[in-house]
């Protein structure tokens, strides 16, 4: 007799894997956007005073 708890259907697993992959991709995209934004803002802060001195 097969144990119903151990029966694994293919579709839910595939759905779960797809959902997990989408989550990972979104997290990676957000991380990259945050990094770019951070570098941009840091550049503004570091250059801010020097740029102001030129005018």
């Amino acid at each position: 007799m097969t144990d119903p708890k151990k029966t694994v259907s293919v579709k839910p697993d595939a759905d779960q894997a797809l959902k997990a992959r989408n989550g990972r991709n979104i997290a990676l995209a957000l991380g990259l956007v945050a990094f770019v934004a951070l570098v941009f803002v840091v550049t503004l802060v570091r250059l801010g005073a020097n740029v102001g001195n030129r005018f």
């Binding site: 694994v8 990972r24 979104i26 990676l28």
Partner: peptide, 12 residues
């Protein structure tokens, strides 16, 4: 072994 799920971002 049959309960290993796909990795989520939280695992990383």
């Amino acid at each position: 072994a049959d309960t290993v799920r796909a990795a989520r971002w939280q695992d990383y």
